[in-house]
Amino acid sequence: MQALGKFIVIEGLEGAGKSTAVSIVSEAIVAAGHVLVNTREPGGTAMAEAIRECVKADWPDEKVTIEAELLLMYAARAQLVQNVILPNLQQGNWILGDRHDMSSRAYQGGGRMIDSEMIESLRRITLNGFEPDLTLYLDVEPKEGLKRAKGRGELDRIEQEDLSFFERTREAYLAMAEQDQNCVVINTMQTLPEVHHDIQLAIKQYLEQ
């Protein structure tokens, strides 16, 4: 069945301002008269939320392998897409996702340097070509993003990685954004009013299409 709603995703490193962007975009979509469902990844269903806790937790007695981390991310995504995203899109509802597949390709592919063929295999199995209609990538310099993230509280297992990990992740994000015609890059190193303006402009232009 062809999807009738639209799937919009907010992407970015820690400290990029995704929560604020989600709020701005949500308001615009609802004001345009659409029924909106918000999701987050990993998470969004009971099982996927349990996987989220598993992924983000510290496991002091064992090493979390990069392969296990990757597989858990796609397991959670499969649950969310099949149980929440696709059914709502087919009903004509709009979905706004706080992260989606680009995150795995950036964090596990770029940051963890996992072989791209392994990731592509999982993408084919779990997504079968399903992609967002619009992605807003909030670009922030990793050092500044981590500084902002630390200011809001305790960091989880992935957020505690070293700076080079996030630099590789950002490079992967930027490379993907350049190749994705449905991705808009928002520079979050600007002033807050400028960032908010650019987000509002991006969603306004999309809604007017």
Rank of each mutant, 00 (worst) to 15 (best):
M1E: 12
M1P: 11
M1A: 15
Q2S: 14
G5D: 05
G5N: 08
A16V: 01
G17V: 00
K18F: 06
S26F: 05
A32W: 14
A32R: 13
L36M: 09
V37K: 13
N38Y: 03
A48M: 05
E49K: 04
A50W: 01
A50P: 00
R52D: 06
E53P: 01
K56S: 07
A57C: 07
D58Q: 08
W59F: 06
P60L: 10
P60T: 10
T65P: 03
L70R: 02
L70Y: 00
L71S: 04
M73F: 13
M73A: 02
A75E: 09
Q79I: 03
L80D: 01
N88Q: 13
Q90F: 03
Q91I: 03
N93D: 12
N93Q: 12
G97P: 02
R99P: 02
H100Y: 14
M102K: 14
M102T: 12
S103A: 15
A106S: 08
A106K: 06
Q108F: 01
G111Q: 05
I114A: 05
D115Y: 00
M118D: 10
E120S: 14
L122E: 03
R123G: 02
R124H: 13
R124W: 15
T126Q: 09
N128A: 15
G129M: 06
L134V: 04
L134N: 06
E141W: 00
P142W: 09
E144K: 13
G145V: 01
R148S: 04
A149T: 07
A149E: 07
K150R: 15
G153Q: 09
I158R: 09
E159A: 13
L163V: 12
F166Y: 12
R168S: 10
A172R: 11
Y173E: 08
Y173D: 07
M176I: 07
D180W: 03
T188M: 03
T191C: 07
H196I: 00
H196C: 00
H197F: 13
I203V: 10
K204C: 06
Q205N: 14
Y206V: 00
E208S: 14
